[in-house]
Design a protein around this nucleic acid. Structure first.
Lengths: 115, 115
DNA sequence: GAATCAATTCGAGAGTTATCGAAATGTCGA
DNA sequence: TCGACATTTCGATAACTCTCGAATTGATTC
């Protein structure tokens, strides 16, 4: 729906792709809400895609609110939502957090970008 | 005024200190505002402490708003403010961004914390 | 088709925050 | 002490967002 710039990478495994300014703002805003962060943690912790019911069990929020947060995380590109009939499954989109982290670390003087 | 948990580290140089949940929320909220992020970038980019006048030149905001954002960044622990008479100087507090970045990366499955 | 369950959308209330102009505080030099 | 300048605080407005219950959509089963 939105991004098609991903996964086309040659050899080196862990090189994080750059995130645009706009997407970075989206991601940071998504992470800034404590509940959403906790939800993301739950998704990350579970090895397999997380069902909404499990997510609800972990967070004391209504279904409407959960739906809202899921959409925020998805819009930010932090998670993938696999819609399978009646159920939806949430999984972490790998690389996004790493890219953000790399961008943040790059601001620090110690990690001089010149090498 | 707030944190006294810092700098007590034995040997290994770059090991980032953990951030509490509350502080992480503060930091992420501080970073989530585009203007604030840009301000932080300016501070980081400048090698030496940045004067408020330079900050204002870089950002199209009023003095009141700038003051507000500075306080947010300071409260989050992202910057240090050296108050020197009439002028204030902003500098990046090293290690905080790195700690946050490390915490975020740790959520990704690739960097299995089990080793 | 009707009932049931999962998830979303709608509408609204409460709380938070970004922003500014105006006023206040603090500092320096004359 | 006075005036000029830097920064903060105050007060207020507008915009945003978290949250929920109720209504809706969509899929499955009977």
């Amino acid at each position: 729906m939105a991004n098609s710039r991903q996964a086309v990478r040659g050899r080196e495994a862990a090189k994080p792709a750059r995130v645009s300014r706009a997407q970075r703002a989206l991601i940071l805003k998504a992470l800034a809400d404590p509940r959403r962060f906790e939800l993301l943690q739950q998704i990350a912790k579970a090895g397999c895609p997380l069902g909404c019911a499990q997510a609800r069990a972990a967070l004391p929020i209504s279904a409407a609110t959960l739906s809202h947060h899921i959409k925020e995380l998805e819009t930010a590109g932090l998670i993938d939502v696999r819609r399978e009939g009646k159920f939806h499954y949430l999984s972490l989109r790998v690389g996004v957090l790493a890219s953000l982290a790399a961008g943040l670390s790059a601001l620090e003087p110690a990690s001089a970008p010149g090498r």
